[in-house]
């Protein structure tokens, strides 16, 4: 008798748990999930691409693991969004001071056709000294973009072309796990706390 009651409580409990899990799945990964969830970059440790930095070094996602990272995609022929964002990033790094030395800061081009290693070298030189510029073969850029869930496309304009591209800044912790995005239109004062939080997740999170 008593045992049966416990069993039925147990069944009800399991049912409730199942429902909770189902609702959770529905809202997080299932059809009810906000689109943004699917657009989160994967962890750096799950990415695979080979690029070259502005000093000619071979680099890949593993280059970033071990320190917190801030990554932005753009192109050097971009007159508005890219210099604005790279200027913002440089300002945040100035505000962080010595802490900035604990971060990788990488600008990856979506326009490898024009952004050669030497073009990247010249361009990043105008911003914070911590900034690295990465370029490479078009298919490797495409693999990198896929990992970061970055969208880009070439758009013809009179006398040439421009690039549409994802303009958020991605933050990863020292283990290479994706932490958050600083969206382009997000109030800039939210950026520093996000970066600090990314740096803090180094502590205790180390494996």
């Amino acid at each position: 008798m008593r045992r049966r009651r416990i069993l039925s409580y147990g069944a009800a409990g399991l049912g409730a748990l199942g429902l909770t899990l189902f609702v959770g799945w529905w809202r997080v990964d299932g059809p009810g999930a906000p689109v943004a969830v699917e657009q989160r970059p994967v962890d750096l440790t799950a990415m695979d691409f080979r690029l070259t930095d502005h000093e000619g070094n071979a680099v890949g996602p593993e280059t970033l693991v071990g320190r917190a990272s801030m990554v932005f995609f753009g192109f050097t022929f971009c007159p508005d969004v890219c210099p604005t964002t790279l200027g913002d990033i440089s300002g945040w790094l100035d505000d962080l001071g010595a802490e900035a030395e604990r971060m990788n800061v990488v600008f990856i081009t979506v326009d490898p056709e024009r952004d050669t290693v030497s073009a990247m070298k010249e361009y990043v030189g105008y911003f914070h000294p911590a900034l690295r510029g990465w370029t490479g073969a078009p298919d490797e850029i495409s693999r990198a973009a896929e990992g970061f869930r970055v969208i880009y496309e070439k758009v013809p304009v009179e006398g040439g072309y421009t690039m549409n591209h994802t303009a958020g800044v991605f933050l990863f912790n020292a283990e290479g796990r994706f932490v958050s995005t600083i969206d382009y239109h997000e109030p800039r004062e939210f950026a520093l706390p996000k970066i600090r939080r990314t740096l803090e997740t180094d502590d205790g999170g180390q494996t």
Partner: peptide, 18 residues
Amino acid sequence: MMPEIHRTSTNEQGVSSM
């Protein structure tokens, strides 16, 4: 030679275009 007013817009997916 070709100055023009442009507008940058960023869509829901965070993609910027001019």
